[in-house]
Amino acid sequence: MNRAEDRNIRIPFGNCPKVYRAINRWAIFGCPFGTPVNRSRSSILFAVLALATMLVGCRRDMFQQPYSKPLEPNDFFQDNHMASRPLVANTVARGHLNADQAFYTGKVGTNLVETFPFPITREVLEQGRERFDIYCSPCHGRTGEGNGMIVQRGYPPPPSYHIDRLRQAPVGHFYDVITQGYGIMYSYAQRVEPADRWAIAAYIRVLQKSREAKLAELPPAERAKLEEQK
C-alpha cells in the first residue's frame, strides 16, 4: 500500500511510467539503485570524480616531451645553453671530410683554381641562377651590377661583376669569396653548400658573358631568332 497513487500525490510524469522510471534511474547520474539518500550522495561523488578525470587532460607531458628539438634552449649545457651542440674540436662530421682541396676551397695550394671541378651543364646553371637570386642578388642585384635592394637601402655597394678585374678573375676567386667572405661581405659557407657555390660561380660567368657576347658566337638557331627580332 505504499504506491504513490494510493497516497494521492502528483508524481511528475506519473501517468507515463516509462518516462518516470527513466528519470528516476538515470537523471541522478550513475547510481540507478539504492535509497534516494545514497543516490544523491554517490552521484555527487561520481560527478566530482568525473570532473577530476577531465583535469588529466590539462597535462601537457605528451606535447612537451623531455627531448630536444633543433636549436631549443637547454640548461644542461653551460657553454651555450642550447640543445644543439657545436662540433668537438678536431673532429670531422660524417660526410664533411672535404679532402678534395680544389673543390672545397677553390684553391690548389695558395693559387685560385681556373677551372670548374665538375662539368657545367644547363641544370647546374639553372641551380646557380636560383641560388644566386636567393643569396647574392639582395646586394649584387639580379644582373650583377652591384645595385641590389639592400644597397639601395644604404649598404655599401659591392663592385659590379662587369669590370675587368672580375672578368679576368679565376673562377676559384668567386668560390673563395662566397666561402670566406670578402671585405665587408660575410662568409656564406654556412648558408650555401659547396656544389651550389660552384653553381653560383658558373652563373656569375653567365652574367658576365651576357654583356660581351658577340652575335657571331651564338649557335645558328639562336642567332636566327635574334636576327628575326631586329
Binding site: 636549436l71 636567393i134 643569396y135 639582395p138 646586394c139 639592400i150 637601402r153 649598404y155 655599401p156 660575410y186
Partner: peptide, 28 residues
C-alpha cells in the same frame, strides 16, 4: 631560404643565426 636555409634538406626549416642578420645589419 636566405634565412631559413635548411628548409629544402631538413625536417627543420632553420632559424637564422645572429650572423645572418648581421650580414646586412653590420652596415644598415
Amino acid at each position: 631560404r636566405y634565412c631559413h636555409t635548411s628548409v629544402e634538406k631538413s625536417s627543420f626549416a632553420g632559424i637564422p643565426p645572429t650572423e645572418t642578420c648581421m650580414t646586412c645589419h653590420s652596415h644598415v
